[in-house]
Amino acid sequence: MHILITDSGVGGLSVCAYAERFLRTTSVDQPVSLTYVNASPENDFGYNSMGSRDEKVENFDRFLHIVADRYQPDLIFVACNTLSVLMADTEFLRENRTPVRGIVEIGVNRLLHDLRHTPQSKVVIFGTVTTIEEQTYPELLKHGGIDEDRIIAQACPSLADTISEDRQGSKARQKIREFVGEALDRSTTPAAEFLAYLACTHYGYRKEFFAETFAKRGIAVQVLNPNEFVANDLFGSLKQELYGSGREGDIQVEFVTRYRIPETALETIAFFLEPISPRTIKAFQKYTYDPGLF
Rank of each mutant, 00 (worst) to 15 (best):
H2S: 10
T6P: 09
D7T: 01
E20D: 12
R21Y: 09
R21M: 14
F22M: 04
Y36T: 00
A39C: 04
M50P: 01
M50W: 00
R62T: 11
H65Q: 05
I66V: 15
D74A: 14
C80I: 10
T82E: 01
T82A: 08
T82F: 05
L83Q: 02
S84G: 15
L86C: 00
N96E: 14
V104C: 06
I106N: 02
G107T: 03
L112F: 03
H113L: 15
D114P: 12
R116E: 14
R116K: 15
P119Q: 09
Q120L: 14
S121P: 08
V124R: 01
G127F: 03
Q135K: 12
Y137V: 11
P138K: 08
K142G: 02
E148V: 05
Q154L: 09
C156P: 13
P157H: 07
S158L: 12
D161T: 15
I163H: 00
S164M: 04
E165F: 08
S170W: 10
R173P: 08
K175G: 08
R177V: 12
E182K: 13
L184M: 03
S187R: 03
S187P: 03
A192D: 14
A196W: 01
Y197E: 06
C200M: 08
H202F: 00
Y203S: 05
Y205H: 10
E208Y: 09
N225G: 06
P226E: 05
E228W: 03
S237M: 14
K239Q: 15
K239V: 15
E241M: 10
L242K: 02
S245M: 09
G249I: 04
V253E: 01
P262E: 02
T264M: 13
A265H: 13
L266R: 00
A270V: 04
A270N: 10
F271W: 11
F284R: 03
D290I: 13
